[in-house]
Amino acid sequence: MKKHERTLAMKKRTVGTNTLRIGTMVSFLFAVTLGLMPVMAIDLPEGAKVGDAAPDFILKNTDDKRVGLASYAEAKGIILVFTCNTCPYSVKYENRIIALNEKFSKKGFPVVAINSNDPSVMPDDAPDHMKQRALDKKFTFPYLFDETQSVAKAYGARRTPHVYVLQRTPRGFSIEYIGAIDEDPDEEQAARPMFVDKAVEALLAGKKPEPSFTKAIGCTIKWKKS
């Protein structure tokens, strides 16, 4: 393989005359120095970390009412899930998100779902479609639309699904877990580590979640094109 790639490289080098290559280089460098290169990566703030205060927000739910952290004055904590209608991984996890709310809302840790995708990139993530999904799946928790994407940015949410487990402190909510629901999207392992489940159980028992940070494959959040 290595050999093949090197010969391929050699071939590419000999193709085209030197003048052409120099020409390309010069025009390329010219473009660089003039700063004509558009900024490629979307610069995303790093966002919140485990242990940080949970950024506050007020967003519109599918019933048009506004929901924020202040709506949960009685809660011990919140399971905040960045998700959406369109990501196949979010769809795979929908029932598990519903189950988390079933299990933990009565113990003081309700689920709050947030969709931060830009509907001009993903039309099926528009508020009307969110309403439909909430109805179809009988969501027992708010499904909020982060229209300006400021909430996803404040939390540093990057993918769907992306979970933040918050715990009440005397000074508001703090972030105690960031990451995946589990690492088994297809529910193939009976004994898979249920990260969010374990994190909430730990907090309920007065302990710190372990692990408190995990990563998993998901879809990118669809950022507005600037």
């Binding site: 990057r158 993918r159 769907t160 992306h162 990563k215 998993a216 494959i217 998901g218 879809c219 990118t220």
Partner: peptide
């Protein structure tokens, strides 16, 4: 296996990347 951090520590796991 998909060892996300081993690919790049800045990768959240979202695709495409």
């Amino acid at each position: 296996p998909v060892a996300i951090d081993d690919i790049d520590s800045s990768w959240s796991g979202a695709i495409p990347a």
